[in-house]
Design a protein around this nucleic acid. Structure first.
Ligand SMILES: NC(=O)c1ccc[n+]([C@@H]2O[C@H](COP(=O)([O-])OP(=O)(O)OC[C@H]3O[C@@H](n4cnc5c(N)ncnc54)[C@H](O)[C@@H]3O)[C@@H](O)[C@H]2O)c1
Ligand SMILES: NC(=O)c1ccc[n+]([C@@H]2O[C@H](COP(=O)([O-])OP(=O)(O)OC[C@H]3O[C@@H](n4cnc5c(N)ncnc54)[C@H](O)[C@@H]3O)[C@@H](O)[C@H]2O)c1
Lengths: 213, 213
DNA sequence: GATTATACGTGAAAAGATTCACAAAAACTA
DNA sequence: TAGTTTTTGTGAATCTTTTCACGTATAATC
């Protein structure tokens, strides 16, 4: 199966928009409406749907409930996905406290850290010693993990995760992790994202100045 | 000038790696070394360099100091880039507390929020009332902003930012913002990133099961 | 100094993603 | 019911990014 990463990402966004639209009573919509809301084009929307076999009704567009049902089917979000976070620092805690995950099937079940000062075994989710990571993941058959530790600790954390049975990782540490290729790694480098904004602001400014001359 | 977003992002990463390499005493390296460290290929590295006119020495690779100097020139990181964050919640505070920005020229100069409970005008950086956003940005000629407010507040915050002179935004709110096209927007949707990990884990599992049969 | 081995630099090819262009289905109109 | 309008669905074309393939410069070796 082709992965079509970008299309999948957009499908999740369409779904999110549909849920909002549904909550304000909308029953039917067109690819144009989706495109408008998402900042893309109606062609893109239909192409994404086409790639995954999602269909609507010519001339009448899409019935919101049908489309949402098809998306839920495809994105498999009727089951909960349990997630562990390693690193209960700034990022780890920000994710932990975020309310928006649960309703979309993502449940942070535990955090792990190497610093005893942050342990909190009775909280929900609990913050546990790193030493428990392997056993916890293995016993609870967790498949998705988040790495939110400093870069020099990231590879060792990943190695434990892999041994324990993790199959996909969101990695915040700014380092290229080594892993077998059946592990899915999604690197999220926030400094890079911010730096690139700064870069393009300057690049565009240079451009503009040049054109003015 | 062509933007080549992905290449630019990688250039920042090369630079980060070079800084680390320098700190452990490395003086020369090959495109292979960079590729290895970054999880890419040497061809990709050289192509990126080629696109931006960075060059090394045939047979002898790159002199670290030279390459770093060329990168610094190109990425313009000899000047500080001042940044404001709107929304002093989970994400806003996580960014604020991150130590890694400063040394790469990113300085969080202030946060803004609409909730009086989080104001702290004497901290560094200060957390100020949203009402001060326009004046602060305008007076200090800030060009880069971060949106870390709930999605329903994001557009209104952006509108103020634009009026005040912001030219580039990193946006954490899960919504497509409307903006003139000379504004550079970098959407970072953390839920989406995590959801997609969960999706690909399941998709790959389905694949594997299918192939086993 | 001539030869050889190695790693760069870059056009050309391939792969991947987006946009175009239009046939066809469905709904509306009269 | 026939004709018209609107919007979908999708191959083909285009644009972007990555990978290939190889000529070339240069350090090392003899
Ligand atoms: N906070 C940000 O805005 C930001 C921005 C860019 C990148 N990052 C990256 O994200 C990652 C996390 O950043 P942060 O700001 O949350 O860091 P942090 O220092 O606040 O938290 C890191 C946590 O990891 C724990 N830890 C350290 N070694 C560990 C180990 N071996 N096993 C388990 N836990 C361990 C620490 O005790 C700490 O609680 C870092 O790699 C950082 O470079 C963060
Ligand atoms: N925390 C996460 O892990 C996470 C994950 C995915 C997406 N996000 C998104 O990132 C954004 C921020 O998330 P968060 O968890 O930090 O939220 P949060 O609720 O912790 O913080 C939001 C802050 O924005 C402030 N605020 C609200 N309206 C405002 C306004 N009009 N002007 C200025 N400030 C205002 C609130 O007072 C609060 O301090 C949200 O859009 C959220 O959907 C966060």
């Amino acid at each position: 199966m082709k992965l079509a990463k970008l299309s999948v990402m957009r499908l999740f966004q369409y779904k999110e928009f549909l849920i909002r639209a549904k909550s304000i009573g909308i029953k039917n919509l067109f690819s144009d409406d989706l495109a408008e809301a998402m900042g893309t084009t109606s062609t893109q929307v239909r192409k994404d749907f086409s790639l995954f076999g999602l269909s609507g009704n010519k001339r009448a567009g899409y019935k919101l409930d049908d489309l949402l049902a098809q998306l839920n089917e495809l994105l498999g979000k009727n089951e909960k996905q349990r997630v562990v976070i390693v690193g209960a620092g700034n990022i780890g805690r920000a994710l932990m406290k975020y309310e928006g995950f649960y309703k979309d099937g993502l449940e942070i079940v535990a955090l792990f850290d190497s610093d005893p000062n942050v342990y909190n075994e009775t909280a929900t989710p609990p913050v546990l010693p790193l030493e428990h990571l392997y056993e916890f993941v293995n016993r609870n058959k967790i498949e998705v993990g988040v790495i939110a530790v400093p870069y020099h600790a990231a590879q060792q954390v990943l190695d434990i995760m892999i041994l324990a049975g993790i199959k996909g990782v969101m990695n915040f540490a700014p380092i290229a992790l080594r892993a077998p290729k059946d592990l899915y790694i999604n690197d999220v480098n926030l400094k890079l994202e911010l730096e690139s904004v700064a870069y393009f602001v300057n690049a565009l400014k240079r451009d503009r100045t040049k054109n003015d001359v």
